[in-house]
């Protein structure tokens, strides 16, 4: 299959006040691939991710330079409609963050705020999304109970279902498994394999095995710079740079 370019990050710099959190990042992300961002804590992975759905707009003292092209449109442009951008670029956060509402309402939320009123469609789409997130069998009898009663792993899959229910193009996942046990983690990894048929996925992870297992492309960040990016197999077997090798083999720092 011909690779098609989904997101092109071009010479991106990002500042929190005077602190330069990202320096001159250029990275291509292809459709229907999983791109993993790895690197030590504080190197700017979350910042990178949050640039992609303009979540950093919430931080008043932040500033961005450079371009990010999504389907060839520059999303850093101040004229871009961030509300519709965020509908197209879903995000799953590091800590599961379901709303204090029922399981159903959590998944329906994105559709409701986007003006969908058709009850039958919403119900249908809620079920489809929860099934796609491999959660349906566990919750189908308690769909109208509070989502806060779910386990951490279930909550995280619910958040994935919630993100998928609005049919985004791209799914951003910031360490989605960091609060989960190995079984829940495995479920989510399997899920990612399924999801990449439909979505383009960018995932941040601290777990090297996970990056190796789920991703097609891996990008290694260090101190706000993109040090090396390559096909995942290559990065993990024959990295070009010593820094990358040290990090993935755990000999870092």
């Amino acid at each position: 299959m011909e690779k098609s370019l989904k997101i092109a990050i071009k010479e991106l710099n990002f500042f929190y006040r005077d602190f330069k959190a990202l320096t001159d990042i250029s990275l291509d992300v292809y459709a229907h691939e999983v791109t993993a961002l790895i690197g030590p804590s504080g190197c700017g992975k979350s910042t990178m991710l949050r640039c992609l759905n303009r979540m950093n707009d919430l931080i008043p003292y932040s500033r961005v330079e450079g371009r990010i092209l999504l389907n060839e449109q520059n999303i850093c442009d101040p004229d871009v409609d961030v509300v519709s951008l965020r509908r197209r670029i879903g995000m799953v956060f590091q800590k599961p963050n379901p709303f204090p509402k029922s399981i159903f309402e959590n998944v329906a939320y994105g559709m409701r705020v986007n003006g969908i009123k058709d009850k039958a469609y919403i119900a249908q789409q809620v079920e489809t999304s929860i099934k796609a997130a491999a959660l349906w069998d566990e919750v189908k009898d308690r769909i109208h109970e509070s989502a806060l009663g779910l386990s951490g792993g279930q909550q995280q899959r619910l958040c994935i279902a919630r993100a998928m229910a609005v049919k985004p193009d791209v799914l951003l996942m910031d360490e989605p498994c960091s609060a989960l046990d190995p079984i829940a983690t495995q479920k989510i990894e399997e899920l990612i394999h399924q999801l990449k048929k439909t979505y383009t996925i960018i995932i941040v992870t601290h777990n090297m095995q996970q990056a190796a297992r789920v991703s097609d492309i891996t990008a290694f960040f260090y101190l706000g710079k993109l040090i090396e990016t390559d096909v995942t197999d290559t990065i993990f077997t024959r990295p070009k740079l010593k820094q990358t090798e040290d990090y993935i083999t755990g000999r870092f720092g």
Binding site: M55, L58, R86, F93, V113
Partner: peptide, 10 residues
């Protein structure tokens, strides 16, 4: 909660 909501296009 706010981030989750905004992230869904609210």
């Amino acid at each position: 909660y706010r981030e989750a909501s905004l992230g869904l296009g609210a």
